[in-house]
Every structure is written in C-alpha cells, then in structure tokens.
Simulated assay, not measured.
Amino acid sequence: MIVKSRAIVISALKYGDSSLIVKLFTEQSGMRSYMLKGVRASRKAKLRSGYFQPLTLLDIVARHKDKGTLEALTEARLLAHFQSIPFQPAKTAVAMFIAEILSQSLREEESNIPLFNFLSEAVIWLDSHDKIANFHLSFLLQLTRFLGFYPHDQNPHLPFFDLVEGDFTDSAENTVIPEDLIGVFRAFLGTDFEGSSQIYMTKTERRELLNLVVMYFKLHLQGFQNPRSLLVLNEVFN
C-alpha cells in the first residue's frame, strides 16, 4: 500500500556500510520503521541521510506491507527548514532527549492526528524561540495528555504530588514531588510553551523536577527506561 504522510524523525541507526534504519512517527500510520538502503553511499542518493536527524519534519511517500517488518521509504522532503535546532547545542540536546522519550513512549501503528499536530507544533516552537530552558519539562507534561496519565488537579492546594496515583495529596507515603518543588510543578500544569518559559526555576530545581517527571513516566509506561540523553540534558542546563 502506498502511503503519503507527514512524519517526524524519531531515530536513525546506521546499518551496514551505507544504509540506515529510521524510525518515524507518521501522521497517517503512527510509529513506523524503514530500511533506507544505500542512503549513506552517495550524495546523489534519492533520499538524503541529512534529512533523518532527530525531530526533523518530513513529507514522505512510503510502501507499507503492514506485516510487522521494516517498511520501504521511497520519497522524503523537508516540511520545515530548521533555523536553530541543528546549530545550537542546547536545542540539539533537547531534540535528542525528546526523540528518545518519544521512541519509548509511542508504539502504536495507527493514526493519531491530534498527537502528531502537537508534536509538530512543539518542534516548530523549539526551533523558533530562544527561552527554552523549561521547554522539555512543559513538553513532557503536555505529552502525558496523549499517553493517558496527565496529572489530576482536583486538589492542587495539597502539599505533595503522588507520582504513583498521579494526583495531589497530603501524604508522602508513596514517591512524591516534595513541598519545595510543588509550586513550580503546579505552575506547569495547564500552561503552554510560552507560559512555561516565564516560570522561574533555579538550576537545581529544574534538574530535580525533570528527574521526578522522568520517574513519573517510568511508573506509568511499562518498560520505560531512563533516557541516555538525560545526563547530557542536565549538564547543558547546568
């Protein structure tokens, strides 16, 4: 079946001397993996290896057999030309971190247009804004809406947030976001990327809250592991 779709690059793995295995989140078919034979062998290749950097937005044409094997990508063109993500180390680190989060979180091979729109808008925001120190925290919390475990906020006045139950609480029996971080955590809920960029945090608060939000993902997504890029990201913003 020939499929035409918008897509977001999640990862690209070198295969052999000249090929790539790429993972894309597509608007029409969800998460898919493709074999790109010979794409690294020649600058004249029909598909350019430079198109497959984390979070690159593409228009693709593909052949899907839907048999659980690697699919075939026949055409790809850039949907957006990044102005800053590939050239600013902090943004590159954020892109790698987000791509790794998505690689672990998104598994369904089916269309989810609202999620695709959220992801593409987030990538464009990251590329076009300068105040990005809180972007990854805002992104993770907004992503949980689509994954089914967005924090409940019926009792936002309570002093802790229970990571297991996903709700504010007055008890610290389970793993919680503590009182000294609950104010900044609460500030992220219900706000967008622009609003989150105005939240003041110390470097220590940002690092500790990020580690707790990653733990929140681990508690609610089976098989989720600490992203390898987490350490790099913490170092960048310290």
Rank of each mutant, 00 (worst) to 15 (best):
I2Q: 09
V9C: 13
I10Q: 01
I10E: 00
D17L: 06
S19H: 12
S19V: 11
L20M: 10
L20H: 02
I21F: 05
V22N: 00
V22Y: 02
K23E: 15
K23R: 12
K23H: 11
F25W: 07
F25M: 06
T26C: 12
E27F: 06
S29H: 09
S29L: 12
G30M: 12
M31K: 14
R32T: 09
R32H: 11
M35G: 12
K37Q: 10
R43N: 14
G50N: 07
G50Q: 06
F52R: 00
Q53L: 03
P54Q: 01
P54S: 02
V61C: 04
H64D: 08
K65N: 09
K65P: 06
K67L: 10
E71A: 03
E75Q: 07
R77Q: 04
S84L: 04
I85A: 00
I85H: 00
F87A: 06
F87Q: 06
Q88C: 03
A90S: 05
A90P: 00
A90D: 05
A95F: 02
A99L: 12
I101C: 00
I101S: 02
L102Y: 02
S103W: 06
Q104C: 03
Q104P: 01
L106N: 01
R107H: 13
E109T: 12
S111H: 04
N112Q: 10
N112S: 12
L115Y: 01
L115M: 03
F116D: 00
N117R: 07
E121D: 14
A122R: 00
W125P: 00
F135E: 02
H136E: 13
H136K: 08
L137V: 07
L137H: 02
F139I: 14
F139A: 05
Q142A: 09
Q142H: 06
L143V: 08
T144I: 08
F146Q: 02
G148E: 07
H152M: 15
D153E: 14
Q154C: 15
P156S: 13
D162C: 12
V164E: 10
G166E: 09
D167S: 14
D167G: 09
F168S: 00
T169K: 02
D170Q: 08
S171T: 11
A172R: 13
N174K: 08
I177K: 03
I177Q: 02
I177Y: 02
P178S: 15
E179K: 11
D180W: 15
D180G: 06
L181Y: 12
L181D: 08
F185I: 08
F185Q: 04
F193Y: 13
E194Q: 15
E194V: 15
G195R: 03
G195N: 05
T202G: 13
K203Y: 14
E205H: 11
R206W: 05
L212S: 03
V214N: 05
Y216F: 13
K218A: 09
L219Y: 05
G223V: 08
Q225Y: 00
N226D: 06
P227S: 06
R228D: 12
S229I: 04
L230M: 07
V232G: 06
V232P: 03
N234R: 10
E235M: 11
F237M: 14
